[in-house]
Design a protein around this nucleic acid. Structure first.
Lengths: 207, 207
DNA sequence: GAATTGCGTGAACACCCGTTCACTGACATA
DNA sequence: TATGTCAGTGAACGGGTGTTCACGCAATTC
């Protein structure tokens, strides 16, 4: 009953996932990922692949899940920074950009498959992003007392801006990233200000 | 000197481009586009491909150019709608969404290659999007008297939001698109309001 | 009318791909 | 200790890929 066998299996499964990650780069995306190359890098025979995944697609979806997991850790991290005071916007956007810089491969994967050629992939990524938005909506409603509708609009806009900036960061130099960070922070603040203005004008009308 | 020969060549060149376009769909992207399939659809021998393009990459860049051209036509169209009065934001976003709906393949191509695996492609798409932003900046500065820096921030944010919404529209049903249109319009207005608030508070400080 | 240019061609080459199959041998079970 | 399970294997099949080459033949040039 000692899981020696199971442990070994899990180990090569991780090796496959890691190998796939390694092959993902700016020049080589998921679409052009080959079973043979992945198994070669993982150090096993091509045929052994099927002991762990039915398809390359199943491997891909696993990768997306890994990305989603990383994103959620990012969220938690961001929350912690918020709780300990300071500029909420700056802390959040900075954390996000740091994530992009240090998880380039995985963020690129999410980004590509968001508008990729597999519906299932698109939906999986979309789910992760929505999770992100929902978290932000919750914050805006409970902490900032925004009405749900407006919070939804605002959060959605901010997420679109930040993810889009993250995409640009992938190709950017360090100084460009710095610039991009400041730009994004300013833009998020503009959105926040606009939402605030919208709220007060609506409240004024109501009262 | 009659260009019968040249005309025929241009014709099959167009056939190749069109064939490539036809093969682009939600399930089948540029990355998995094969020379042989394209020539098959175009009705010529695989080898003839090289009479028109050096690589598949050259064909791809041509497709991106076509997309850029279409985007600029969209811009011009949008300008016309603005000149004849009505809500600027609504007209612009609506036009954009209509473009996405009727040029699905080409917009999807631009979107995918924006974060795709060829640096040259990414830069080409980025150039097109920047052209888009520049046009908007110009409008904000000359027509709305925004200071250049703020106009840049605002335009960039709006373009990010609108393109991101366009991406979501690709997978959406008609009613979802309607909803998305309204959401996007509201978001653009929030950004405009935020920028306005930012401007006036800055001006107040200065005076 | 003769010479040249150049688009389109079919055969062929070398390569990589995903997937199947029967098999081995270490671990797990009883 | 005997039996069964199952991750990993190497050979093989069928198929698609990009690219080369020499060639035919109609449009063009002189």
């Amino acid at each position: 009953m000692a899981g020696v066998r199971a442990a070994q299996k899990e180990k090569t499964r991780r090796a496959l996932i890691q190998a796939a990650m390694n092959q993902l780069s700016a020049e080589h995306g998921y679409a052009s990922l080959s079973l043979r190359e992945v198994t070669r890098e993982a150090g096993i025979a091509p045929t052994s692949f099927y002991r762990h995944f039915q398809n390359m697609e199943e491997l891909g979806l696993t990768l997306v899940d890994e990305g989603g997991l990383a994103l959620r850790q990012l969220l938690r991290q961001s929350r912690q920074q918020i709780d300990q005071g300071g500029s909420i916007v700056r802390a959040s956007v900075t954390t996000f950009m740091e994530f992009v810089a240090s998880n380039t491969a995985i963020f690129r994967l999410l980004l590509q498959e968001k508008s990729g050629n597999s519906r299932e992939f698109r939906l999986a990524v979309q789910r992760e992003v929505e999770h992100f938005t929902a978290e932000l909506v919750d914050y805006l409603v409970t902490e900032q007392d925004f009405p749900p509708g407006l919070a939804e609009l605002q959060a959605d806009a901010i997420v679109r801006i930040v993810f889009s900036a993250g995409a640009d960061a992938l190709d950017a130099t360090t100084t460009q990233r710095q610039q991009l960070l400041e730009t994004t922070i300013a833009q998020v603040r503009i959105v926040a200000r606009g939402a605030e203005a919208t709220r007060t004008s609506a409240t004024a009308t109501k009262s």
